[in-house]
Design a protein around this nucleic acid. Sequence first.
DNA 1: CGAACGATTGACCCAACTCAAATGCGGTGG
DNA 2: CCACCGCATTTGAGTTGGGTCAATCGTTCG
Lengths: 206, 206
Amino acid sequence: MFIGAGQLRYAPSNIYLFHQEDPAAVGYFLLEGKVRLAQLAPGGKQVIVDIISPGRYFGFFVASANMTYPISAEVIEDSTVYCWEAETIRELVLRFPRVALNSMELIAKRFARLQDRMQMLATERVEQRIAHALLDVSQFVGKEIENGAMIDLALSHQDLAEMAGTNIYSVSRVLRKWEDDDIVSTGRQRIRLCNPAHLRLLVEGG
Amino acid sequence: MFIGAGQLRYAPSNIYLFHQEDPAAVGYFLLEGKVRLAQLAPGGKQVIVDIISPGRYFGFFVASANMTYPISAEVIEDSTVYCWEAETIRELVLRFPRVALNSMELIAKRFARLQDRMQMLATERVEQRIAHALLDVSQFVGKEIENGAMIDLALSHQDLAEMAGTNIYSVSRVLRKWEDDDIVSTGRQRIRLCNPAHLRLLVEGG
DNA sequence: CGAACGATTGACCCAACTCAAATGCGGTGG
DNA sequence: CCACCGCATTTGAGTTGGGTCAATCGTTCG
């Protein structure tokens, strides 16, 4: 949408598209690559809020609202983005109300997802949280193998820990246990879900 | 806004305006009273996502998106709400783009707030989380006394626990400690922040 | 006055965090 | 091709925050 009003931009791995607290001047749509949205806590720890894969918007609504970015966006895989100035977004929304409605629907879904994650952090124990985080992220960034029975994720233990609100040691121990039970298989910066159904059980069951 | 397109409704304490999983058919604006938005976790525990005070919208964006409510809304103080059918909201957004823009700004702020809460749940320890939750909720539902030096909250330990992702026992212990330090004073379903600045220190500091 | 409910307190215990150290893997440069 | 370095991961041991349970107390209200 809005092709023409914004501009295409190539962003190599490891750069930041924007930093937390920066005035939100630009909204993005990811065409290709991968971007990590993280929030830095006072004290050094950070939380990964989301991992963006192609076809998704980010920093879009804040930009329309004249705020500062509440999170940072780090490119973790060479990416191509399409981006719009905040002012342009506002004009487009005013000109094409349909766009606004779509945006509202989009954000409502993201909102629900965020609430789910909040609940998981508030009520679940580490093993469930890790399962939850894996399933959540696999909806978008996973590469399916063999009719979806397996999902391959490019994800470090560090990332997973920051999504589940724990540390790399606990992540390692949990993954090891699951590996013994053939639920996942792990490698350097790679996690393969061999049995997503079992993970789902863990999340539901308790 | 939109007066005329929706309708006024009186809702007594203890009823639910909507339940989690219900199709989101109506969006609300609170004129008077207090409403608790909570999400029930599989396993009985629940998380209080927000406490709504007069002047705020809720269930509004989900309604515009043809989804099911991701949370339940319980009236916890006799309330007056103004509400719109989902279809009406969509029509209004399409007809008055300005409304859409305002909505997007509104939701972006809420989004940022939710992300903050997520971070707190993921990285902070219980004492900080409770301080955080108190400050967060006091922005909206507190009654200021003596030029803001004190804030009076109608809040049970149970509520606070469900906001901070802990249990009533830990809440009680933390509040007791703070009471000994004259940071708060407590009563039945009532918490008075005597020294919000000190709480803010706790949140920042670590 | 008594029932119901919120709050308190103590004792116990375990999940998970911390720290330290070892191990393995990948890429690089000689 | 091998040696080396840096980083991700693993593993063990020790510690503890805070969750759980049980019992009690206080207060509100019918």
